[in-house]
Design a binder for these strands. Structure first.
Lengths: 211, 211
DNA sequence: TACAGACCCAAACGTATGTTTGAAACGTAT
DNA sequence: ATACGTTTCAAACATACGTTTGGGTCTGTA
């Protein structure tokens, strides 16, 4: 990373800082000085701060959604049954495993997603939905086959609820860890939490629909 | 509201703008000009922008947590059984009903909470935990009695997951509504979503704990 | 009427931000 | 070796922000 090109050094640093402090709270000067590049490099290579943010997401999500698509292909090819556990398990293993060399990367992934989704005007959310909505929809179709008794509209919202539970929890893990440690004197890792998440989400997604 | 005092005019306006655009993205100038008060009024009455943010939350959460405490008292007095539906139902009805005269207020409540929780450095989260952690803990104890088979540590995280699902979904409702309308051609209200949330959360909270 | 304290206001202050500039350094192919 | 497109750099620019200031206005009291 120290010997990487300017563009990658900026992306690497911006990714970490955005996840740590948010978009508005991270200045270009903070990024460039930490990355060891000139301030003007961001505008030269990306055009604007806004474009840098999008570039960070693109570098993150394009491999992820490609891998997810491949896993779904594989699932269909091998005839793996569409159960909630199988479908959600794919997503989790992927999110945790896309960068096995860097375990912190998974946390960054979730924190970044949280920042994007909770951005007020939500235009980043729209961007994500536009560029990665196709894989997302495919995932939802598999889930629908897993729980055919849940109406599509209901399932749509349950997937949103699940997204909220995942991103919200994992993007706020550092604070929650402190609380958890104070209450239970136990450290928790990202992998721990996802292990706890799976049964929760499965239980919620396949819950009975009232009346 | 037009004739209210300066302090309340600032709080009313800040509340809406913070929920709409976030804390960092909302300038004091935007607040004061929309509120029709002088720019210096914020620093005069509150001391700083940071203090204003806290004041907004205090005005929101103090009545809410008081009402929640009262409802829990009532529950214990009447001997209402501790079921997940009962406990969660209290919270939802309260969040939706604390300001019946202004239905939009519920959405603001959730959006504000989302902003607070997703704030990067999380010191607002710490503030909330410090000032309202007691009621929160009481709520969790009732839930624990509702699902005694779930270990406390597991329940702690499931409550966090639930919080995430609720806040995340409702704080991003405007974007999600657009997506939902595009996919299903149906409008959805905050009350609709909470109605869908309840079975999801109950299903997740009382799910079997593996191994 | 005179005083005092609370409140309001226009203006300025200092600082931090994203962006732009124009020249210097670099690498490469002619 | 020279010329050229690309990249880097220090510096400056314009703007927006939170905060402070000092004088003014209002209100209630003695």
């Amino acid at each position: 990373m120290a010997q990487a090109g300017t563009v990658d050094r900026i992306l690497d640093t911006a990714e970490v800082l955005f996840a740590q402090k948010g978009f508005a709270e991270t200045s270009l000067r903070a990024i460039t000085s930490k990355a060891g590049v000139n301030l003007a490099a961001v505008n030269y290579h990306f055009g604007s701060k806004e474009a840098l943010i999008q570039a960070v997401f693109e570098r993150f999500l394009t491999p992820f959604s490609a891998a997810l698509g491949a896993k779904l292909d594989e699932m269909e090819a091998t005839g793996t049954p569409d159960t909630p556990e199988n479908v959600l398990g794919i997503v989790f293993r992927l999110a945790l495993g896309t960068h096995p060399e860097d375990p912190q990367r998974a946390a960054i992934f979730f924190r970044l997603s949280g920042q994007a989704y909770s951005q007020p005007q939500g235009h980043l959310r729209d961007y994500l939905h536009k560029h990665y909505g196709a894989v997302f929809k495919r995932l939802q179709e598999h889930l629908q086959r897993a729980v055919p008794s849940v109406p599509p509209m209901e399932l749509f919202w349950r997937v949103q609820f699940s997204l909220g539970a995942v991103i919200f929890t994992l993007s706020g893990m550092q604070s929650l860890q402190a609380i958890s440690k104070a209450d239970f004197d136990l450290d928790v890792s990202t992998a721990d939490i996802t292990r706890r998440l799976l049964p929760f989400l499965v239980g919620g997604i396949q819950a009975d629909v009232p009346e």
